[in-house]
């Protein structure tokens, strides 16, 4: 964030109170094609990234799990059978369209019973203190206006001993990979977006927002500042994506 009144929306500087509306516009536009686009853009690798995140979650029967920015419910669908009838999974998203697509998708797949849907802002989570055993946020933190505020809110609702997992695009470690990734993000991604989702601007924003997101070490520091302990991260696919983990 550049100062208290302004923040970034991709490469653009915008008023802080405008960002949520602009991000909502992006996700309203892509909600129905979100899953197809994820598969196309990552060649299906996003499933592997999410699978590893689930492995790191340590979720067991009876646990309470919060999946923030859960979108179309990829993680929540896996957590629901892991927590069982005695557990609880909350799929939260600030965007009503994404939440609606996720709910329809999971209901069609028969995932129900211990799964709840909540429209919520990650910065002001509407849950009691010390409530969840595990919190995940996959490809959502970079869209949050005030990331520090969101991390503190997550820390508040997490039980002592619980863990937060942040799966997010990050900075590739290899300069060659970084250049190839830039060419792909700014040359290919918006075109795929235009052809498949009929919207190149949203995918231009995606590429820009990834570049503006804090790198691995900065995000770990932000988690530590929010109160998380034993913070670490795992780079995946050369650092294109990283999963950060911290405990309360």
């Amino acid at each position: 964030m550049s100062d208290n009144d302004n923040t970034h929306f991709g490469y653009r500087e915008v008023k802080t109170d405008e960002k949520a509306g602009l991000v909502a516009g992006v996700f309203d536009s892509v909600a129905t094609r979100y899953d197809v686009m994820n598969d196309l853009m990552s060649a299906g690798i996003h499933r592997i990234w999410k699978r590893f995140t689930i492995e790191l979650s340590g979720v067991r029967r009876g646990n309470r799990v919060l999946d923030i920015a859960g979108g179309t419910g990829d993680l929540a669908a896996k957590f629901a059978p892991m927590t069982g009838d005695e557990g609880e999974v909350v799929l939260a998203d600030i965007n009503a369209n994404m939440l609606s697509v996720g709910r329809d998708r999971l209901m069609d797949r028969g995932v129900s019973g211990n799964l709840y849907y909540v429209q919520a802002d990650a910065q002001y989570l509407p849950f009691p203190d010390d409530y969840f055993d595990c919190i995940t946020i996959a490809f959502g933190l970079r869209n949050v206006t005030d990331k520090d505020l969101a991390l503190r809110s997550m820390h508040r609702v997490l039980k002592p001993g619980g863990r937060l997992l942040v799966l997010e695009f990050s900075k590739p470690k290899n300069p060659l990979l970084s250049r190839a990734y830039d060419a792909y993000s700014f040359g290919v991604l918006p075109n795929i977006g235009r052809l498949v989702a009929g919207d190149s601007d949203s995918y231009q924003y995606l590429a820009e927002s990834i570049r503006m997101h804090p790198d691995q070490d900065t995000l770990r520091e932000m988690m530590e500042n929010a109160g998380f302990l034993r913070c670490d991260y795992h780079n995946m696919t050369g650092g294109i994506v990283a999963v950060h983990r911290g405990f309360k």
């Binding site: 690798i45 795992h234 994506v241």
Partner: peptide, 18 residues
């Protein structure tokens, strides 16, 4: 930054997971 509980280390988590 890739130490994982139980004493195991994953050098390439995405490949391993795949």
């Amino acid at each position: 930054m890739n130490d994982i509980p139980n004493g195991s280390t994953l050098e390439m988590p995405a490949l391993h997971t795949a």
